[in-house]
């Protein structure tokens, strides 16, 4: 066991993958010499060599398209895109090729690659650096979308993603990279892609979130507990395939659900969670499902971030309204 940040845990998981599977290669912009814009690949090129860790030209479509070809040929590439807001040039590759080759070839060719992308706001970054557009990827059949929020999940889920026979978009919450530390096993282990994690058990209300917003969800739950409310907090961890059974189980138990996400509300993943709950747990509900989300705006620049990002106060207030409904 080592006490690691989420960033260190990801770095360790990549090292473990490079160590244990010669099919694994890393490619992306600035991931070699500098260890990536967030240093997630720090030291890996020196340790595993220029034939395993590749700095590439600045071309997101090219990175994903080349990784896709490598994957078809039997490698397990892990591509890094620097920010989710920079991923759209690769969207054509992801939606039209990566997510489809198994279908198009009736299982003959597959694309076991991982696309790692830092995402989310709260660090006062420049435009395009704070996006949370996970829903536009979770909508794509053939792709899996994974979002860890803890250092130990980060290791287990990343190793699972690299092992996965299908393509995985692996979203890393920028704001949590160095915000939390946790004891992480040094061993090789995987965390199953799909099942959500019950962060804390409770009886009165369920708060569902993922990624960086888990921090606010956790804090809101702690505050609500102080006033005697028992809160169940769910970390979805995987957005596609979404753990509908896990959500329904909790909703049925508590009868009240609040979904929290950074992305804009309209057609966000919160709508999917709400739809699952009303389809399968409506008669257990004692209040409408509520969403605490980013607004339907472009992610704002630094000075307006506070207006945009869901806060502990907003979550607590909506939770209280839900409890009183």
């Amino acid at each position: 066991m080592s006490e690691l940040t989420l960033a260190q845990s990801l770095n360790g998981a990549l090292a473990t993958a490079l160590e244990s599977d010669e099919r694994v290669v890393l490619l992306g912009e600035d991931i070699g010499r500098t260890g990536g814009v967030f240093r997630i690949t720090d030291g890996l090129r020196d340790k595993y060599g220029e034939d395993r860790v590749f700095d590439t030209p600045v071309a997101e479509s090219g990175i994903v398209g080349a990784a896709f070809g490598m994957a078809i040929a039997g490698m397990h590439p892990v591509a890094e895109l620097q920010f989710l807001g920079f991923s759209y040039p690769a969207y054509d590759q992801i939606i039209n090729h990566v997510a489809r080759i198994r279908n198009r070839s009736n299982h003959r060719f597959t694309a076991p690659l991982v696309i790692r992308v830092p995402f989310g706001g709260g660090i006062g970054a420049a435009e395009h650096h704070s996006e949370s557009t996970e829903a536009i990827y979770a909508h794509i059949p053939g792709l899996k979308v994974v979002v860890p929020s803890t250092p130990s999940d980060a290791r287990g889920l990343l190793l699972a993603a690299i092992e996965d026979p299908d393509p995985v978009l692996f979203l890393e919450p920028i704001r949590l990279y160095r915000a939390v530390k946790e004891e992480v096993p040094d061993s090789y282990y995987t965390t199953e892609i799909g099942p959500l994690r019950v962060e804390r058990e409770g009886e009165d209300i369920t708060v569902v979130s993922w990624g960086a917003m888990m921090k606010e969800a956790r804090a809101a739950a702690a505050r609500l507990e102080e006033s005697g409310v028992s809160v169940e907090v769910l970390d979805l961890r995987t957005l596609s395939p979404i753990d509908a059974d896990g959500i329904v189980r909790s909703a049925t138990k508590t009868g009240r659900v609040v979904v929290v996400h950074e992305a804009p509300r309209t057609a966000g993943m919160g709508a999917e969670v709400a739809a699952i709950v009303q389809e399968r747990a409506l008669y257990s509900l004692t209040a409408p499902v509520r969403r605490v989300t980013g607004w339907d705006t472009v992610f704002p620049l630094k000075r307006s971030e506070g207006h945009y990002l869901p806060t502990v106060d907003r979550i607590v207030q909506v939770a209280q309204e839900t409890l009183e409904a």
């Binding site: 398209g65 080349a66 896709f68 490598m70 078809i72």
Partner: peptide
């Protein structure tokens, strides 16, 4: 680009 990845 797929032929680049395959060949690579």
């Amino acid at each position: 680009i797929h032929a680049v990845g395959l060949a690579w």
